[in-house]
């Protein structure tokens, strides 16, 4: 006889028992010990069929191949640039991955990307020791110019984007800003100063209230009246 002890979207703490019995399967951010499944983080419970997983309410970003992130150039080497990824691990952007055009050997790399420049990149490789390679070769990956960069907890990124990008589209439309959300929690907002400030506040509001239902309506109301 198996028993589930939590319901959908219930808040759980690390170590909380989620289910007893072998009929349930431990999903992300949970673990099994004997016949019990426990949570491994502070988060919201999600049950799909027999699988129980926890959506964290906070937590560090884990670099994944294919993720689009925003990084900052911290150093320039012979073969490319060192990039701060807003995690414990920096990434390398190799010269060959920086642009589609040919870069001559004697070219001054700082003319292409200088220290403290922010860039939008894709993660193309992560090793077990978290050595990261990034690339700027795909469409939309570029050096950031103008606007502002803000930081949110990376666990809140899906909420800021919304289902089928509904939330971020709403903010873009209402504020007239271009917005690029990095999976590492850095977000680039480009628009009028007023629009940028409103978008920033809306995103911060989502970060703070990500666990609540009816968030889209709240954000809409804020963007309608809050400026």
């Amino acid at each position: 006889m198996s028993e589930i002890l939590i319901e959908e979207r219930k808040i759980v703490v690390p170590g909380e028992v989620l289910a007893i019995g072998l009929d349930y399967v431990p999903g992300e951010n949970t673990y099994r010990e004997e016949d019990k499944i426990f949570s491994k983080v502070l988060g919201l419970a999600a049950v799909s069929g027999r699988v129980i997983k926890i959506t964290p309410l906070a937590g560090p970003y884990m670099p994944k191949v294919g993720d689009k992130i925003i990084g900052r150039i911290t150093d320039i080497a012979f073969s490319g640039w060192r990039v701060d990824t807003n995690t414990a691990y920096s990434a390398m952007l190799n010269v060959k991955d920086a642009t589609t055009r040919f870069i001559k050997k004697e070219e001054d790399l700082s003319k292409i990307l200088a220290i403290d420049d922010y860039i939008i990149v894709d993660i193309i490789n992560v090793t077990s020791q978290r050595l990261i390679d990034v690339s700027m070769r795909e469409l939309g990956l570029k050096k950031i110019q103008g606007g502002r960069i803000i930081e949110i907890n990376s666990q809140k990124v899906p909420r800021v984007i919304g289902k089928k990008a509904s939330m971020i589209t709403l903010i873009k439309e209402k504020t007239g800003c271009e917005i690029t959300v990095g999976q590492n929690g850095l977000i680039w907002i480009l628009g009028s100063p007023e629009g940028e400030a409103a978008a920033e506040r809306a995103i911060k509001m989502i970060e703070e209230k990500s666990h609540l239902s009816g968030l889209t309506e709240q954000v809409e109301a804020f963007l309608r009246g809050g400026r």
Binding site: V13, P14, G15, N29, Y31, F38, K40, V41, L42, G43, P56, L57, A58, G59, P60, N153, Q155
Partner: peptide
């Protein structure tokens, strides 16, 4: 630590 979202098997 829990508030920071650090993986923990318990409190």
């Amino acid at each position: 630590l829990a508030d920071a979202g650090i993986p923990m098997k318990d409190l």
